[in-house]
Design a protein around this nucleic acid. Structure first.
Lengths: 147, 147
DNA sequence: AATGAAAATGAAAATCATTATCAGTTAATA
DNA sequence: TATTAACTGATAATGATTTTCATTTTCATT
């Protein structure tokens, strides 16, 4: 992942400050699994920084999303979930179990997917004059345990 | 689209009743554009059936979703949106403008997409023992007016 | 190091979509 | 027609997210 220096510069360049709460939230993303909800992030941050409030977590998640550092998704479980938008998770490919809510990330077949989405993005951009920045593919069904 | 008789039978077979409020809600889907929110559906139903309550709309949308008649999506604008899950909209392909929230349905390149998703579904099903029922592809970016 | 302005914060209240409750209504079946 | 279960509207409750506001922090400039 990117170093702290890179982040600091990005914040500074856009007129924001890389404060302690914001660093703490970024650390959570670097140290934990993906698909974290605001509440989960709040609790994880709370371990080391009990003073950080939930509103700040929401505000920071919003900011990081706008900056393109994290990606916000909705898997239908009643709250938004966030994950790092770095290279490794660029495509946001998920299998979502509609019974238990489990989310599986797959990172196989990415080459094939990249090829397909690149082509489609080019065609859609032209036809609809739409500037595509990212995409998301969700497969819904039943996981092994729920069948 | 399917006739009323088909719907009636489906409801009956599964132990549900095709009541006036439910018919009114189905009519809304057959007569209006897609991506309707619960609130929008409530208002449209309200024109002809002022007695139908919002809770019933939510309950019916839930039922129709479970029955697979409509499809529930989240486009990140704070509420769930619903559309008919008939053949024409099977794939749920959307371009979502992250600035103005506009949603564009595309129905081009569906053949290519079908081929891709079929292949991927087969491979993912095998690898993750996941029974895939549906999928959703969202492209996020800026529409022509927002660039 | 002191200062001033803008950005950021925590706590609490407010908002808003959705869900649960409950008493009354409707529809299918015996 | 009586019984039963499904369904309903109105309302209250819930829970995630946003807003408010007074206070604190940060940073560029003295």
């Amino acid at each position: 992942m990117h170093g702290a220096g890179w982040c600091y510069r990005r914040f500074k360049d856009e007129g924001f400050r890389l404060t302690i709460p914001r660093q703490a939230i970024l650390d959570v993303f670097n140290q934990n699994s993906k698909h974290l909800s605001a509440e989960e992030i709040f609790l994880l941050v709370h371990r080391n920084y009990p003073g950080v409030g939930l509103a700040t977590v929401y505000r920071t998640l919003d900011l990081l999303t706008q900056m393109g550092i994290i990606f916000k998704s909705d898997f239908g479980d009643g709250c938004s979930r966030y994950e790092l938008a770095d290279e490794a998770t660029k495509g946001h490919h998920h299998l979502i179990c509609t019974r238990c809510g489990r989310i599986i990330d797959y990172s196989d077949f990415i080459e094939k997917e990249e090829k397909f989405t690149k082509e489609l993005e080019t065609e859609l951009s032209q036809k609809y004059k739409f500037k595509i920045n990212s995409h998301q593919i969700h497969f819904y069904g039943l996981c092994d345990k729920c069948q």
